[in-house]
């Protein structure tokens, strides 16, 4: 990506974020983009082309993941940024914050096994019609790690119908052969959902960590496709 034009990503820094440095490193070192932290008390997102809400435990998350972060000053700015069509990606805790703040529908509850799970899973790219997956091949299978305790996606039937109908389910947990099975579902998510977009398709929430699959030393570089898609979309617009 060395010769691609450099965009400026903002990585939101909550006091309990802990994948913040990983996201920054992947964007800067593996994708050659410019990236900076945004403190959770800031409301100024000017100069950023895309916003990333990283993984971690935003404010400790003892109550419910993301439940307090939705009230932070930066979140109202992110909300406005999204309303104006800006690209927002929430990863893991970032996804939890996006559903808590209503930017994405549904809820993320405790994993079915009731404990934290860290492992590399397979994701089926359900739709390439999004700024986050347009660099993927239709039906491509990506190996990307998960690491969460509250990643079981839930939505009522009506919401699910809409998500499925409008191709807003972007990633689904599958086995290595690409089949949607209960065994391939690491947390009990309904319909094996791993990532969804909003109606405007400019806000993505996903439990797996693409920033952990951006460097060959980490064993997979499939996560780069998500960021490369974003970069491509931003450059084209």
């Amino acid at each position: 990506m060395a010769d691609s034009p450099s965009l400026r990503f903002g990585v939101v820094l909550f006091p309990g974020s802990n994948c913040d440095h990983d996201a920054l490193y992947a964007l800067r070192e593996n994708l050659g983009q410019s990236a900076d932290f945004i403190w959770h008390e800031s409301e100024d997102l000017s100069g950023f082309d895309a916003i990333l809400l990283p993984g971690g435990f935003s404010y400790g998350d003892y109550l419910r993941a993301g439940a307090i972060a939705r009230f932070s000053p930066v979140l109202s700015a992110v909300q406005r940024f999204a309303e104006h069509g800006g690209l927002v990606i929430g990863i893991c805790n970032g996804f939890q914050i996006l559903v808590e703040s209503g930017l994405l529908p549904g809820a993320l509850v405790r994993n079915r096994c009731l404990h934290f799970v860290c492992r590399t899973v397979h994701l089926h790219v359900e739709s390439t019609e999004s700024p986050f997956t347009r660099h993927c091949n239709p039906g491509q299978i990506l190996a990307i790690p998960i690491a969460h305790g509250e990643g079981c996606y839930y939505a009522d039937e009506e919401t699910l119908d809409i998500l499925e109908r409008d191709n807003r389910v972007i990633f689904r947990y599958v086995n290595a052969d690409g089949r949607v099975t209960p065994e391939a579902n690491p947390n009990g998510s309904v319909n094996n959902i791993a990532g969804i977009v909003n109606e405007g398709r400019n806000v993505l929430g996903m439990m797996p960590h693409p920033e952990r699959a951006a460097d060959p030393a980490m064993g997979s570089i499939d996560g780069r496709l998500v960021f490369e898609s974003m970069i491509h979309s931003l450059v084209r617009s």
Binding site: N18, C19, H21, D22, Y25, A26, G55, H115, F116, V117, C118, R119, P145, A147, H209, E211, R212, A214, D215, A217, M218
Partner: peptide
């Protein structure tokens, strides 16, 4: 046991749990 631990955060773990020795890179 080790799947309950986040063994990848900070993206340095080049030899995960279960190996003879764990390895992390120091960027």
């Amino acid at each position: 046991i080790y799947e309950q631990y986040d063994y990848m955060v900070r993206t340095n773990t080049t030899a995960p749990p279960g190996c003879d020795a764990a390895v992390v890179r120091v960027k």
